[in-house]
């Protein structure tokens, strides 16, 4: 038994051990690696092209300018059209808002039904939904193109919104089913004893309890829909092009010398909405990931 000095009293004085220093060093270096691209993005977007050509990637702008931002927003060129990414912003909003609302609603109803109302084929349905959530989009594209043009929805806003709803529904259902599984079934039974039916229980009992889950789902789904590329590329039509598609066009189809500062400004603008959501959401974002990713 190793004793302390005879007059030891109170809290032991802390000495910073090598191991502890090592941990902090690793974390700080790693953080630098992760922040670096963000830093370079911002810094590049504020430099005039002349300064960028000098090649000092990490240097702060010596004569910062907001020109690239204005250009990116309203007059950046993609191919022959030069109207910036602002139109994309509006389109992304028009796609995201209805898609997120509807898929959360459907997911909640489905999760509720699967969780509390055991019916034949429920487990099977759920398993298929689950598998469907992971399928590569490429497997659906050809049939969907044929169907949507047949129905007249190809290249329209309702069409692309509908597709987003279809493809986000499985994950939403999974999230809500797992969430409702944590609600004591006695609550449900008590409501049934009181005489409430399917919709009454859902609207008056379950929905009010679901607010935290709705927040999490909204966060995850808004980020996912906003960041989508393929569905927007194929199904949105030239009138409803979302921001991600516009961004890719701006960055990768410029004639002549590439306007790197404009590109970076456009990139930041496109990533702004998810980033703001992320940074203001605190732990909710993490909760969403663990709810979906860590099953069971």
């Amino acid at each position: 038994m190793k004793p302390s000095p005879h007059n030891a009293r109170g809290t032991k004085p802390q000495r910073l051990s090598i191991a502890r220093i090592g941990i902090y060093v690793f974390l700080v270096v790693s953080s630098a690696f992760f922040i670096l691209p963000l830093y370079v993005m911002v810094v590049t977007s504020l430099k005039p092209m002349a300064e960028i050509r000098l090649g000092h990637l990490f240097a702060l702008p010596s004569s910062p300018t907001f020109e690239p931002w204005l250009t990116a927003w309203s007059s950046a060129c993609r191919g022959l059209t030069c109207d910036g990414v602002s139109a994309g912003f509006l389109n992304s909003v028009k796609i995201t808002l209805p898609a997120v609302t509807a898929s959360i609603g459907l997911g909640a109803i489905n999760g509720y039904a699967l969780s509390f109302w055991k019916f034949r084929g429920a487990e099977f349905l759920f398993a298929v939904l689950l598998i469907g959530a992971f399928m590569p989009l490429q497997v659906f594209i050809y049939p969907l193109v044929r169907i949507s043009s047949g129905v007249g929805l190809f290249g329209t806003l309702p069409g692309v919104v509908l597709l987003h709803i279809c493809f986000s529904m499985p994950l939403m259902t999974l999230l809500f089913r797992n969430f409702y599984a944590t609600i004591p079934v006695d609550l449900f039974k008590a409501a049934r004893v009181d005489g409430a039916g399917f919709w009454v229980i859902f609207l008056h009992v379950m929905l009010p309890l679901s607010v935290p889950m709705i927040a999490v789902a909204a966060l995850i789904q808004t980020t996912g829909t906003w960041n989508d590329y393929i569905l927007g590329l194929i199904f949105a039509g030239s009138d409803n092009v979302p921001m991600t598609v516009l961004l890719n066009n701006v960055v990768n189809s410029q004639f002549g010398e590439k306007q790197y500062n404009v590109n970076m400004a456009a990139t930041i603008l496109t990533g702004l909405v998810p980033l703001i959501l992320y940074f203001s959401s605190g732990r909710w974002f993490v909760r969403g990931i663990t709810a979906g990713a860590v099953k069971g």
Binding site: M1, K2, P3, S4, P5, H6, N7, A8, G10, K12
Partner: peptide, 10 residues
């Protein structure tokens, strides 16, 4: 023995 600053194992 004064164990105020000792680790549990000690």
């Amino acid at each position: 023995k004064n164990v105020t600053w000792s680790e549990p194992k000690d």
